[in-house]
Design a protein around this nucleic acid. Structure first.
Lengths: 226, 226
DNA sequence: CGGCTGATTGAATCAGATCAACTGCTGTGG
DNA sequence: CCACAGCAGTTGATCTGATTCAATCAGCCG
């Protein structure tokens, strides 16, 4: 079991390149746990003493409004870590997290991790790079929400998917309702945006399969603004 | 001049508590420079080899759309640093920066700073805390943009100002047009939102002076959603 | 074969953007 | 010292993208 934990830790991108002894000391303090699809890991505002890494499965991080609308901030998959913010600052989670699928997670307590960072400047630089990339992503998300309309945001999202999947035949990584929530809208509006891109001849959609017919056109739309 | 630089560095929050010799070595690599109101410091997408700290004045960081609409991400004042992202990741600025007033800035090259971080774990932790607090702020901003309407966002903004100024008689720190851009809207809409809060008896406004008449009411509105 | 959830479509409504006109202030130059 | 140019802000009228509400449809599991 201890060994599983060690393997799991080694598969987290943030810990790549960490020397074996340090990995071991992480394994001493990390917890390995499973969780069911739909399970809430934490809620915005709660005290956050641990941060997490995804060994398998999928977790969404989001903010909810009282009326039930939700904005997804990110979705994390195997190898990624999340909820680092309260480790370094403020101590409460700025958002909520929920498993989208049955998942296996590592949870790492704040205390021991900070100790490790003091001793491992390269790991610290890795954390700074990770936080920075997240900042960059958020800057993009804020700009999209504020400056672009839904079809343009959708075009941008599809281009991201295309880049990550490396081909024009895409498989949507999330149910459409969740994509809507990530794009800052609702399923009805997403549905109409998809129809619009289809009518423009940019994509073809069947279920959760999307064919990108005109990447340049999509890119042009994604860049466009009012 | 060298001494001024040292003093200036000492007044940057991020460098508080840094031992004198390290401050000196920072002073060796940092540049002190003035800039005029309206001057653009960098544009989104440019290579970013330096990051900045504000000695005096005010700088806004924003993203612009082709059509001219702008979304302000943050405004930085004396003692604050910004544009750290390209130091650690990706190398390009995710947003643009422009001086709002005549300002004095420190610019610190990536290279030497990373070296310093390797040797100074406490500074590294400070940087992580800073990046984390920025992430927290962006999470809030995304949630506001996506989940709240303009009057609610305005209420939230005024409550922040009230907290930072410590009293109910506020002085707006930015021209209203810039506040609109920060709230993700346009001056006309902000103007109407102000009118609405006034009619609700929550605030009173004269020029850039705002009196908070009903903090609880403002808070209730800021929490509210559709 | 029901019944549930996710997705789609249509119609009505609404918040916010756009366009245009107007006010008031500031600072500059005749 | 006054006049006027110019910018920030306000107000009104209109337009539009997105949400809301409601109904329907498709696929999936028991």
């Amino acid at each position: 079991m201890e060994k599983d934990k060690l393997t799991a830790l080694g598969e987290i991108k943030l810990f790549e390149g960490l020397p074996q002894p340090q990995l071991k000391s992480l394994a001493d303090i990390a917890q390995l746990r499973g969780c069911k699809a739909g399970e809430t890991l934490f809620e915005a505002g709660q005290q956050g003493t641990h941060f997490f890494a995804v060994v398998s499965g999928k977790v969404r991080v989001y903010r909810a409004s009282l009326s039930g609308k939700e904005q997804i901030l990110s979705v994390f998959q195997a190898g990624e870590s999340f909820a680092e913010v309260p480790v370094f600052e403020g101590k409460t989670y700025p958002a909520s997290a929920q498993a989208l699928e049955d998942s296996v997670l590592l949870s790492i307590p704040r205390k021991g991790f900070v100790e490790l960072l003091r001793r491992e400047p390269e790991l610290a630089l890795g954390v700074m790079a990770l936080l920075s990339s997240r900042l960059r992503a958020f800057v993009g998300q804020i700009a999209q929400l504020s400056l672009k309309e839904v079809p343009e945001r959708l075009a941008g999202y599809l281009l991201l998917l295309r880049a990550s999947q490396g081909r024009d035949e895409l498989t949507l990584d999330l149910p459409k309702g969740q994509i809507a929530s990530y794009l800052g809208t609702i399923p009805e509006t997403l549905s109409r945006a998809i129809k619009k891109l289809t009518e423009l001849g940019l994509i073809e959609v069947a279920g959760n399969r999307v064919s990108v017919l005109d990447p340049e056109g999509l890119a042009a739309l994604a860049e466009a603004d009012r």
